[in-house]
Each structure stands twice: as structure tokens, then as C-alpha cells.
Computed example of a mutant assay.
Amino acid sequence: MVNKEIKVIKDIIQEKVNLQTVLFTSGDKGYNYPFLSGKVKQGDEVLVNTTAVDLKLGTGGYHFVIAKYPFEKEKKKSKGHIMKLRYTPLQFKTYPIEEQLGKQLDYISLKGTIVITAELHSMLAPIVLSLKKLNAKVKVAYVMTDSGSLSATHSNSVTLLKKHKLIEGVITSGHSFGGDLEAINPISGIQGAKIAYDADVIVVSMGPGIVGTGTQFGFTGIEQSYLSDLAQNIGCTVYPAIRLSFIDSRKRHRGLSHHYLTNFGYLCNGRFDIVLPKMARKKTKFVLSQIKKHNISKKHHLNIANGVNISDISKEFQIPLSSMGKGYDENRDFFNGLTSLGRYVSSFY
């Protein structure tokens, strides 16, 4: 059940394209997506979803605006007829690339196009920054899936990467929304990224907010396995980004995360080049023992590359680097695991 309250807007704290952060007269805060609920201003009365805050869940203490009063109707008819958030009270119409490009999608060749699949949204920025630091001319596009946040505008990384032209564009696929282009599924999203942006490298991952349960298969990042297979099946050269850490308090995420070991030791069908960073001997030994235990070395080809120091470029563009609450210097292995892949891929351009 959705918990709802009527609240009044006291102030607009922050405003960016398709996202307003608001303060209510009750003293709590919320997010508003103008293209879903209409743009709000001081004094507006709004209907608010308070469920996650009431349950003390992970939205950072923010409510979500459902609608404002009086209700508004679309003033001009827009193109498209594909609904996202289908059969929910917030279903809305989009004009996806499948409608825009039609049969062009069927004839596009993806041979030689590099796709990097990533489990966590926090992997996007380090991958892109390492690629651009080593080769500023490489064209990178981002296809966002619907396994995390459904709104691309909720991602600060996406906002900043677009602002500084580090990515050519964003395609939101499935029920995710708010990208430069919309797609019905991630595969069409990859095709669209090639046609619309002439992308050399396409990063595919969910938005912020992975869901995990501690069970073997109960995590939304399981999509990395089948998306890697699907992208390879349509002709792309696929590199699955690793999830590596030695500081996570959860034993199952030490070294290579059990998510990664499940995806590429057990679930996927394809054979991929997996890139590991150069590490201290003890850490390397531990990771190699995981790889052997889960038959990853039998299924895939292993490569080793140096990580890339991206602290300077992240500061230059004011793009924070953090994953699971740990910053760049605290969890260097995590970021080296991603930037070593950036180094490996950039060598092809």
C-alpha cells in the first residue's frame, strides 16, 4: 500500500532539468519530477508519497510528489504512444527510439562496438572518467536499465557527465525514464546509442539503488549476466566490469563480490574478456582462488591491466567518486577494478 499525505511547498531547495528538490511547510523534504507531476512552486498544495520515509527505508529521508492541485492536462499533443510505468497510476506516454527509428534498428551493424556491462550505478563515473582521461576523443553513451532508480534525472553522476560532455547521451530503457532518448528495452537502447550517438563504447547499467538480499540470486544486479549475453548475441564486444573490494564488512562481497561470481561463474552463457587490476600479491592470490573455485577461468579469458588514477579528473569536473558509502581513497581496489578496464578498452582507440 502507498502511504499518502497532502503537503504544501514552502520552498524550492534545488532545481535541475526534470527534478525539483522541495521543502514542505511540515519541515520535511521531497523530490518532484515536473514531467510526471507538473512543475511546483512555493505555496502549491501537493499529494505526496511518504511510504519509504514512514518505513525508514533508503530514499534518504525524501518524499515523492505524486501530483499537485489543481491538476494540469497536457497542453499540446506530443508524439509517441508507448507507455512506461504501464498499468500503474503514474503511467505516461513516451516516444521511444523504436518508434522514431523503426526498421533502421534492424539493419544497424554493432560489430566492433564495445559494450561495458556494470552491476552498480556507481561504476558509471569511474569507467567513463578513465576512458576520457586516456582518450578524450572516445565517444561514450550510457544505456540505463530499470533495475534501480527509474528516473535518470535522479542521478547526480549522469547530470555531471552530461554537463561536461563526457558522455554523448543517455538512453533510458524498460520502465526507466528521463534520458535524452527512451527505449523499450536495453538491446534497442544499445542499437539506438550506436545510431544516435555513433558511440564507440556503450555502458549499460541500472540507475542508483541496487537491491540485494544476501541470497544467491536475490539481487537486481543479476541483469549483468543476461545483458552481457544479449549484447554479445547482437554482435557487440562485451566487457563485464568487475565488482571488487577488500573493505566491505560483508564477507560475501570480499574480493570479487558473490554477485559477480554468480553472474559469470554460473549464470551467463557467453565467454568474455575479464579485466583485473594489478594488485598486491596477497589480494591477487585471493581473487585468483575465487576465480578458480567458481570456474570463471574455465569459462572466460582473464586479462590484467594497471588502474588509472582518476582523482584529478574527478576533481576537475567536480564529480564525486563513491560506492556503498566509501570514497575513492577508502576503496581504491573497487575503483582500480573499473579503471583498469577503462585502460584496457581505451587501448583499442
Rank of each mutant, 00 (worst) to 15 (best):
M1D: 13
M1V: 13
Q14D: 15
K16I: 15
V17G: 07
Q20L: 00
T21E: 15
S26E: 08
G27W: 00
K29V: 13
Y33E: 07
F35V: 14
G38I: 02
K39V: 13
K41C: 12
G43E: 05
G43C: 05
D44N: 10
A52M: 15
V53Y: 10
L55D: 09
K56T: 14
L57H: 07
G58Q: 14
H63C: 12
K68M: 10
K68H: 04
P70S: 11
F71Q: 15
E72V: 13
E72I: 00
E74I: 05
K76F: 14
M83P: 12
L85N: 04
G102I: 07
G102H: 08
K103P: 09
Q104H: 10
D106Q: 11
G112M: 12
L124D: 14
L134T: 13
L134C: 03
A136L: 14
V140E: 02
V140Y: 00
D146C: 07
A152M: 03
T153I: 07
L160C: 02
K165I: 08
E168F: 04
G169F: 01
V170T: 05
H175M: 10
S176R: 04
S176H: 08
G179S: 01
D180L: 00
L181K: 03
I184F: 03
I190R: 02
G192I: 03
I195P: 03
D198R: 04
D200L: 02
V201H: 13
V211D: 10
V211Q: 13
T213R: 09
Q216A: 14
G218E: 01
G218K: 03
F219I: 04
G221L: 01
E223I: 05
L227T: 08
D229L: 00
Q232R: 05
Q232C: 10
C236K: 00
C236V: 00
L244F: 01
S245M: 02
F246Y: 02
L261W: 00
T262E: 11
G265I: 08
G265F: 05
Y266S: 12
Y266N: 11
L267F: 02
N269D: 10
G270W: 01
G270N: 05
D273W: 09
V275I: 04
V275K: 00
R281H: 15
K285G: 06
F286K: 07
S289L: 11
K292Y: 09
K293V: 13
K299S: 10
I304T: 15
G307V: 08
V308C: 01
V308M: 05
D312N: 06
F317T: 00
L321W: 10
G325P: 10
G327E: 04
Y328R: 07
Y328Q: 04
R332Q: 12
L338K: 07
L341A: 03
G342Y: 01
Y349G: 11
